[in-house]
Design a protein around this nucleic acid. Sequence first.
DNA 1: CTGCAGATTATCT
DNA 2: GATAATCTGCAGT
Length: 203
Amino acid sequence: MRRSLLAGPVLEVAPRLLGMVLRSTTSEGSVAVRLTEVEAYDGPTDPGSHAYRGQTARNAVMFGPAGFLYVYFTYGMHFCMNVVAGPKGQPSAVLLRAGEVIEGIELARLRRNQPASKKSDRDLARGPARLCVALGIEREGNGTDLLAKNSPIELLDGPGFDGEPATGPRVGLREAADRPWRFWIPDDPTVSPYRPHVPKKRA
DNA sequence: CTGCAGATTATCT
DNA sequence: GATAATCTGCAGT
């Protein structure tokens, strides 16, 4: 994977990531997934982006060069991860939403606390928070260079994906929910189900 | 399959 | 103080 492939406009970079491989290696072992679903976040112009209101401690990685990992914590219990795209200083990123585990499936099952079964294996990395759990990625992964030699989290040229990606609205956002910036591999069973934003009732 | 409630805390206003 | 780029379990179709 060349960094120049990630340094372009995020709406071009996002579909390009479909079929690429992300591998994470820890003391427990390695898990790799083939990416099947992503979403684009275009900082300066996108009210749905964490970078829309400027730089903060949390989103600082998005303001750096392409090819680094932006990990954030949300809903009080989940991690999600993005690949930083776009030219440096123009904050944009691609949320990695789902993948198919192609290596280290036993470790992924252990982390996700799921039994071995063809039915549940499909769910191992189906959704952004599940993807992070399967790969063992938490806040210390924030800022990792995915293209560095011997990086614990690496982005590799995978089988790729020929054909037209499916597109549609992003999942779970309140702001700018209408922009069709979610991309996925059509008919792939590991793609997550669509869920619209639901405001929380208060007591 | 769909829909809803509840969990739980870093982050921003 | 309110909210969130979510997940799980449970009930119903």
